[in-house]
């Protein structure tokens, strides 16, 4: 299947602004986003997530490289490329003095789409903004402003929706609404690219995950594959009696004794057929160590992410 966004060799170096020198925000990024997927771009602050999105959307000029949006070059054929994209930026940039209705209708017009009050009404209702349609944006709460930004991005019926840190500073209810909306959009065929540093979100929502750090894409993978590939499991034995050190009889196993001396932690790969748990438990029994509790835990995307990023730096 043709990718809806094809990024090749994309690099960006910001011109020096004294006292700061030139800053290389992106180092030759190659990335394909598949049609109809939810793609999560993960990375710490300053990794280059927003720069990448802004280049695709036309707000930042790339230093080198190309971006094809549904086959259209985003510079040479900017109209075709941009008309397919809706952007919800990270910051709440709104026209404080305008009403919700006017500002959302304006967005539709800016994209060259003829007025369609029924469609705008549907979007506002979907986002629980209908009652506020004649309110000035300055009178709305932060969460409501975030909804307005989403409504603006959807007003021109985009095929691709970029959500830059959509849930930063958003309450639980809005977050839930937003994810429900994102799923509905995906079901209707819209491709979603979102950035986040809440890994749980990516874990919950995304089909594929890209991890970006210091301007480079470290890994792009199906979420489940990524978790399987890099995921580790941990078995924790809560001991009946504290011990000072790991007994020599258990030396063959990769064990770690937690401070306090009551928890023995065994880390193993989820990919191998032989986890070694059975052997371990046998040896533990033979050494006369009694345990009162046993638990296993799979590493979250967050832990995978942290280990990936720290490995690089």
């Amino acid at each position: 299947m043709q990718s809806i966004i094809a990024i090749a060799g994309l690099a960006k170096t910001y011109a020096p602004r004294p006292p700061m020198g030139a800053f290389e925000a992106l180092k030759s990024i190659d990335l394909d986003v598949r049609r109809g997927e939810i793609f999560a771009l993960l990375g710490p602050n300053g990794a280059g997530k927003t720069t990448l999105i802004n280049i695709v959307c036309g707000i930042v000029t790339a230093t080198s490289g190309t971006v094809l949006v549904d086959g259209h070059d985003n510079v040479a054929e900017f109209r075709a490329a941009r008309s397919r994209i809706g952007l919800v930026p990270q910051e709440l940039h709104t026209d404080a003095f305008e009403t919700v209705w006017k500002t959302v209708s304006f967005s539709r017009g800016l994209w060259g789409k003829p007025a369609n009050p029924a469609f705008i009404e549907k979007i506002l209702k979907d986002l629980s903004l209908w009652e506020k349609k004649d309110n000035r944006i300055m009178t709305l709460s932060g969460g409501m402003k975030r909804r307005v930004m989403i409504a603006k991005a959807l007003a021109h019926e985009p095929q691709i929706l970029f959500l830059d840190e959509p849930t930063a500073g958003v309450d639980v209810e809005l977050r839930r609404d937003m994810w429900a909306l994102v799923r509905r959009l995906r079901d209707s065929g819209v491709t979603i690219v979102l950035t986040t540093h809440y890994i749980q979100e990516a874990e919950e929502m995304a089909d594929r995950v890209g991890v970006i750090s210091a301007g480079a894409l470290i890994v792009v993978e199906d979420k489940t594959t990524l978790m399987r590939k890099l995921g580790r499991k941990q078995l924790t034995l809560h001991l009946h009696q504290r011990i000072e050190s790991i007994p020599a009889a258990l030396g063959a196993h990769a064990l770690e004794l937690r401070p306090g001396g009551q928890d023995l932690v065994y880390t193993y790969d989820t990919n191998t057929d032989r986890s070694g748990i059975a052997a371990l438990l046998q040896d533990v029994g033979a050494a006369g160590i009694r345990f009162t509790d046993l638990q296993t835990k799979e590493s979250s995307l967050e832990e995978i992410f942290v280990s990936l990023v720290s490995k690089r730096s």
Binding site: C57, G58, I59, R82, P89, H93, A96, L110
Partner: peptide
Amino acid sequence: FTGTIYELLSAPVS
């Protein structure tokens, strides 16, 4: 000043 220029720059307008 308000930052709403993002929309103008990302819109399919010359």
